Simulated scan of single mutants.
Amino acid sequence: MPLAHSVLANVMDPEVPVVSVVDLGIVRGLSWREGHLHVLITPTYSGCPATEVIETSIRDALVQSGFVSTQVEQRLDPAWTTDWITDEGREKLKAYGISPPVGSADKRSLTAEKPVVLCPICDSKNTLQISEFGSTACKALYRCNDCLEPFDYFKCI
Rank of each mutant, 00 (worst) to 15 (best):
V27L: 06
P120W: 04
M12L: 11
K107H: 12
D83S: 09
D106G: 06
P14G: 03
E52H: 15
K94N: 11
A79N: 07
L37N: 01
A105L: 04
I58C: 06
T44E: 03
S135V: 12
A9Y: 05
H36R: 15
A4I: 09
V102E: 10
E149N: 13
A112T: 07
D152V: 09
M1V: 09
A61C: 11
Y45T: 03
T56E: 15
S31T: 15
P17N: 03
V117S: 04
K139Y: 01
T56V: 13
Y142W: 10
L76V: 09
P17H: 08
A105P: 05
V16W: 02
I54V: 12
L40T: 11
L30D: 02
W84Q: 07
G97H: 08
R108I: 14
R33H: 14
S104P: 09
P78D: 07
C138Q: 09
E91M: 13
V116G: 00
N10D: 15
W84H: 02
D87M: 12
N145C: 11
A79C: 14
E113Y: 11
G66W: 06
D146L: 08
D152S: 13
V116D: 08
I26N: 02
D23Q: 11
S109T: 07
W80R: 05
P14Y: 10
P49E: 14
R33D: 11
C48K: 05
T86W: 02
L24N: 01
C144T: 04
V68P: 09
F151I: 05
V53C: 08
L3G: 07
S99Y: 02
E73G: 01
S109R: 00
K125R: 12
A105G: 11
I58V: 05
L148Q: 14
C48M: 10
S109I: 03
R33I: 12
C122I: 02
L62T: 04
K139F: 00
E73I: 12
S124I: 05
D152M: 12
A95E: 12
N126L: 02
P78N: 09
G29V: 02
E91W: 04
P100M: 06
P49L: 08
S6E: 14
K114V: 13
V18H: 03
Y142K: 00
I58H: 05
T136K: 01
G35R: 11
V21H: 03
L8V: 08
D123S: 12
